Computed example of a mutant assay.
Amino acid sequence: MRFENRSIIVTGAGSGIGRAAALLFAAEGGHVVVADRTEGADETAHLISQAGGIATPIRVDAGEEEDVIRMVALACDTYGGLDVLFANAGISGGMANLFDTDVALITEVLRVNLIGPFLAIKHAAPRIVAHAAETGRGGAIVLTASVAGLRSGAGSPAYSASKAGVINLAAVSAQQLSGANVRVNAICPGLTETGMTKPVFDYAREANKMDRVGRLNPLHRGAQPEELARVAVFLASDDASYVNGQAIVVDGGLSSSHPVTRQDYGKTAA
């Protein structure tokens, strides 16, 4: 029960890694604000309640400041403060290459994937700091980045750039919260079966090609959301009390080499 009576916000909690993390937080005694822009928020909160946990759903757009302010206020008003933020919400932005990516697309991806975590930290961190001072226990912020933010070969230009920003945001935030007893870290998932990647996994199953999913990593498979959620929950817990400002890679070993088939500029794939 590492999170007994602790107040927690999880964004993007309507499915995938966010849902898996919200369930784990609640199973360990956390009081969870389940935030998502879809009805998945209500579904996740219902699953938590069915399991005997405590959760409050809220529909938000993670990249809209007023929504973020409302989300943080809900957690503080409902649960008496805020201990943990897991800023997990994100979008893929498709697979367009750099020269086919229009400004509207990259703007939207950055708005949700990078400005979203920035807003979450901006408005949640002061409340976490205040609550940590009141309770005498540390607070934690975890962000969802990606192996695509480490180097080329794991995502589109828009997505990769946004996640590189998240990795840096974690490091900068950890430094700017020096002395506040609040840690900030990021997780960097590899290929994981979530709503975002569902078409890839569905196609592989239909075409009987699941053996090709994740074939570039040493484990030769994709991840399940729970495998990423466990790492996020660990980083948010006191078990990770001396881990700060880090980007923890959870990718089956993919980024140990980041193998990729390259395509020459100006040429189309056969």
Rank of each mutant, 00 (worst) to 15 (best):
A154V: 06
R59S: 12
L119W: 07
R183T: 02
Q224D: 14
D36C: 06
L98Y: 10
V260T: 13
T135P: 02
A232D: 05
H46Y: 10
T192W: 04
E108S: 13
A89E: 01
A45L: 12
A89L: 01
I248Y: 06
D238Y: 05
A27Y: 08
F118P: 03
A133T: 09
T194G: 04
P157K: 04
G253A: 06
V213F: 01
F25Y: 12
K267H: 15
I91V: 08
I91F: 02
G80D: 06
M210G: 07
G222C: 00
V184Q: 09
L219F: 15
F25P: 00
A73I: 07
L23G: 02
N88C: 11
R59F: 13
S241F: 09
V250S: 05
G190L: 13
N168A: 12
T135C: 03
L177M: 03
A41K: 03
V250A: 03
V184C: 02
N217M: 10
Y242L: 15
G195V: 09
D77W: 06
I17T: 09
A204L: 12
S160Y: 05
V109L: 09
V68L: 04
E108Q: 14
L216V: 15
V34C: 06
S160W: 04
H31V: 08
G29D: 01
D83H: 08
G53Q: 09
C188P: 00
L219D: 07
V260E: 09
